[in-house]
Amino acid sequence: MPVNIIIFGQLTDIAGNSLSLEGIADTDQLVNKLNELYPALADKKYLVAVDKKVISGNTVLTSNNTVALLPPFSGG
């Protein structure tokens, strides 16, 4: 089962609004895979949320998890 990824803010300019990836075991692996697919993501800051919970360390992903990548906004 694939992991679904939703992308926010200006990160969508790099990786589009959403994608799904197969065979991803955890969030570290996901980030590495994304950096491989979209090298411009590598030096961007963003939070990672799994099923709408923001995570800080590496988190195991199971099938049908939805991962959100959300960059900080500064505009006001």
Binding site: Q10, K45, L47, P71, P72, G75, G76
Partner: peptide
């Protein structure tokens, strides 16, 4: 807790650079 360290100012574009729809703010 969400973003521990600030991004560099040129890493994320602000409204002046990236634009913003007026009703959003």
């Amino acid at each position: 807790d969400i973003f521990p360290n600030p991004p560099k100012e040129d890493e994320v574009l602000n409204c002046a650079e990236a634009g913003v729809l007026g009703v959003l703010p």
